[in-house]
Design a protein around this nucleic acid. Structure first.
Lengths: 192, 192
DNA sequence: TTAACTGGACGCACCGTTGCGAATTACCGG
DNA sequence: CCGGTAATTCGCAACGGTGCGTCCAGTTAA
């Protein structure tokens, strides 16, 4: 009798090795080529796996990317918001580290790729938030500032975070020359 | 002798008719299918034009889209920021009309398509700003508010606009249930 | 004469699907 | 306990379809 309540399955079991290989290959190709040049056939080749194995378990390119995102195969470590008690300085420092991150060579198209992926699939958009933890880490810091009386109690935290991140995203998409004080200006636009 | 200083060209001249047809077809297909399902072959067929004619004058899909954007073939009329003297109310009204615009049936994927296009081509991102006039119309209103003393004199206007629009974009990408007071909350996140 | 146009064809890449043989794993009757 | 059978996985290979970007031939217009 099966230990679990699930119906007993018959036949070969899913290859964990193949699953890992696919997600790893997706991460590597995503990093080097970006989202839009990512292909199922390319992933299959890189992973040393048959195309059918991918189609059996994932419904689309965006589904694979979403899973790779969850398993942290896609992104380098992302900065967390510091908490020195000075909300403005903390946000500026965090924003600056974000900007430095995407300014590193090899990360040119990172934001672009992530946004493109989010455009294609509703899942990715929401999972991006969860996986990156951006919303979580920033909003807890904001709420702490609200509790400390540094920000008004009725501040719509969710929308504040969205405006902050959205400003960063638009800035990245414009690919303009990065003004050195852009982090400070962006935060000051929100905290005046 | 040619009137202009340019070297006299021989042979047929570029067909303005074909150019207009291409940009018009691009606008129609963009509206109905969105950016990512837009194809050169589809545009050629819709415009009643040979594929070669498109490739002769534009280098890529994004180039065609960028040109269509410039000629105002892509977007419905976009709202302008009112000026009642109350900056907060004006911004909320404007943001609400933006939200209503993309909430209309048929405009579901509009923001998504525009952002996807902006991801693919640097031109489109910057031209989007110019063509929509978003940056211009909002920032003049903001500057008026600054002049009226309703906003601090050292407010980074550019970044303020980016945060506002960016918040709207991220909200659109998430495709979540649109909270009825989202416009008011977004503006309040910036103006507290 | 020269350049732009149409129409059609090409090879290439990738899509998403299907069929096949081989391997793996549970069940079931002897 | 053992061997057969059914179910399910895998890899390999092919299919038709679509769009890409290019090229060529023939026609039309300055």
């Amino acid at each position: 009798m099966p230990a679990s309540a699930g119906v007993r399955r018959r036949g070969a079991v899913r290859s964990e090795e193949a699953r890992i290989a696919v997600l790893g290959a997706t991460g590597r190709l995503f990093a080097t080529q970006g989202y839009d040049h990512l292909t199922i056939e390319g992933i299959a080749a890189e992973a040393g796996v048959s195309k059918q194995t991918i189609y059996r378990w994932w419904s689309s390119k965006s589904a694979v990317v979403a899973d790779a995102l969850i398993e942290d195969k896609l992104l380098p470590d992302h900065p967390v918001v510091p908490d020195t008690g000075d909300i403005r300085a903390d946000l500026i420092a965090w924003m600056q580290s974000l900007i430095d991150l995407v300014a590193q060579p090899g990360n040119d198209g990172l934001v672009r790729s992530l946004v493109a992926a989010a455009c294609e699939s509703p899942d990715i958009g929401t999972r991006l938030n969860d996986a990156l933890g951006i919303t979580a880490t920033v909003s807890t810091r904001i709420e702490a500032a609200v509790a400390a009386g540094q920000l008004p109690a009725d501040l719509p935290v969710m929308e504040f975070v969205r405006a902050l991140v959205g400003g960063f995203v638009l800035h990245s998409l414009e690919r303009s020359e990065p003004a050195p004080d852009i982090a400070e200006r962006l935060v000051r636009a929100l905290l005046h």
